[in-house]
Amino acid sequence: AEDTGLRVELAEEGDCSNSSLALRLWVEDPKKLKGKHKDNEAIEFSFNLETDTPEEVAYEMVKSGFFHESDSKAVAKSIRDRVNLIKKARDKKPAGC
């Protein structure tokens, strides 16, 4: 959340073989967002490491009215940063977990 004002955390992780995750996103620093958004509300969503892209999820969040179009890049970046961290952590785990 250091630069986008948004925080994304892992809500639920399947086992390593499962590429689907549950992530949770909320606004940590409202001043860093340009458009209207819902304060104090966390949005939990599924994310498939193999088929989903952060940009696509951000677009759906904007379409659903959670964020303004002007913040979609920040939402996508926050999701991408967290997903990259999760992928790195998984790469470190022994094969077969």
Partner: peptide, 27 residues
């Protein structure tokens, strides 16, 4: 619970719930 709202968009489900107090204090 009544505080949780489910929104569907393009086949994806978003579950909206209040941010836990503890997480708000962190920021």
């Amino acid at each position: 619970s009544s505080l949780t709202q489910v929104v569907h968009s393009a086949g994806r489900r978003f579950i909206v719930s209040p941010v836990p107090e503890s997480r708000l204090r962190e920021s």
